[in-house]
Nucleic acid binder design. Sequence first.
DNA 1: CAGCCACAGTAACATTTGTCACACGGGCAA
DNA 2: TTGCCCGTGTGACAAATGTTACTGTGGCTG
Lengths: 211, 211
Amino acid sequence: MSEETIVLKNTFPNFSNELIQEIEANSSFQSFKAGEVIMRTGQYIKSTILLLKGQLKIYREGEDGEEFLMYYLQPGQACAISLICSTKNQTSQITAKVVEDVEAVSIPIALMDKWMMNHRSWYEFVIYTYRTRFEEVLEVIDNIAFRAMDERLEFYLKRHAKACDCKEINLSHQEIALELNTSREVVSRLLKKMEQRGLVNLHRNQIELLM
Amino acid sequence: MSEETIVLKNTFPNFSNELIQEIEANSSFQSFKAGEVIMRTGQYIKSTILLLKGQLKIYREGEDGEEFLMYYLQPGQACAISLICSTKNQTSQITAKVVEDVEAVSIPIALMDKWMMNHRSWYEFVIYTYRTRFEEVLEVIDNIAFRAMDERLEFYLKRHAKACDCKEINLSHQEIALELNTSREVVSRLLKKMEQRGLVNLHRNQIELLM
DNA sequence: CAGCCACAGTAACATTTGTCACACGGGCAA
DNA sequence: TTGCCCGTGTGACAAATGTTACTGTGGCTG
C-alpha cells in the first residue's frame, strides 16, 4: 500500500476500500502554499478537493474586495459547494484561500456523480458534508443578523481557539477585522474592553484567551 | 389517474412515473392554514414536505423571538434542510410558517434515503434543491454582511415583487421590519426616502414598486 | 545606530441604526 | 356619529459602528 493510500485512509476513515482505490486511480495529489487562492468567486468548478493536510479558509467576497469568513476546512473535509455542482458548468460562489500549506486530492466533477450512486460511503460523506456546512452557515447568519460586533468577536475568537486547540491566537487586529468585515480600530476597541473584563490578555500579534 | 396524481405530476414535472407512484403509495397529503407554524427550531424532523400549493416562509429565530427571513418556498419546492437529515434524529435549525394556505405531500424520512439510490429523478431534485438553497443563503449573507439597510430593503422589495410577480406589495412596514430584523420606524424612514427618489409609491398597507 | 514599518492604542467626529414620543388619518364597530 | 385601533410619518435622542488622524513602540534592516 502506497504512502498516499495510507494518508487517505487515515484522513477519511469512513471511505470504503473500493472507494479509496477509485480515488487513487482517478485523481491527482496536489499541494498549495499558504496564501494561495485555489478557488475564486465566478470561476468554473471543474474538480472538488479532499483536504489531507493544512487548512483552507472559505469566504465570501464583497464587490469591493471585502472578505467575509464562512468557515475553515480541515483535513478530512471537502468543500460542500464543489460537491454538488452536478455536471453542469457551475461557477463558484465563494473564494478559498490556503491558510496553512495544503496537501489535497483533486477529483474531477464527472466522477462524483457516479460515485454518489455506486459508493455508499461517498454518498454519506457528501450528505454529511452538506448538512454540517449548511448548519455552520446558518450559525453565521445568526451571528451577523442577531448579534452585535462584541459578541461576534468573542464567538470568532472562541471558534479560532477551538480550531487550533490552543488559547493563543496569532492574528493581528487587522486580520480579524477583515474576516468580520469591520475595521481594525473597532477590533482594537472591543479587544481592549474584553481585556478590561478579564477575558483576554493582549500581546503583539497574539491574543491570549482566558475564557 | 387520481386528481392528486395529476397535481403532483404537474407540480414536479421532472419526477419519473415510478417515483410518483412511490410517493402516492407511501406519503400523505396534508394542508395547513395561513399563519400555522409547521416546523419549529429544535423540533425533530420526521418527514419532509413537498409543496403543491401556497407559500411557506423559512426563517431563523433569534433567542428573543426575533425573526430573520431566509427564503420562501413555492409549489414545486421542498425544504432543503429536511431533505438531508439522513436517518439520524436531527433537529430543525429553522422555522417554517405558512404564508398562504398550503397543500403539501408529507414524506417519511426513512424513504428518502432509499429513493436517493433508486430514483434518479429524486436524487437530482434533492441535489438541485440543496444547491439552489445554499446559493440563496449565501446571497442572504452577502446582504447582511456587506450592505446597509437601505440596500437590503430595496433587495427585499424586489425579491417580493418577483415572487408574487406583481409590482404591488401588500405588507405593512411592521411586517417588513420583522423580516429584516429592524424596526418599523427605520423601514418607514427608508421607504420615504425611496419615495422621494421616485422608486416607490406608498399607500396604506401597500407599496407600489416603480423600478 | 538610524530609519522604517507593521502593529496597536486612542481621541474626535460622522454616519447609521435603534428607540422613544407623539401626531395624524382612515376605517371599522359600538 | 363617536371613539378606537392600526398603520404611518416624523422629530429628537441614544448607541453602535465606521472614519480620520495622530501617537507610541518594538523589531528589523541598511
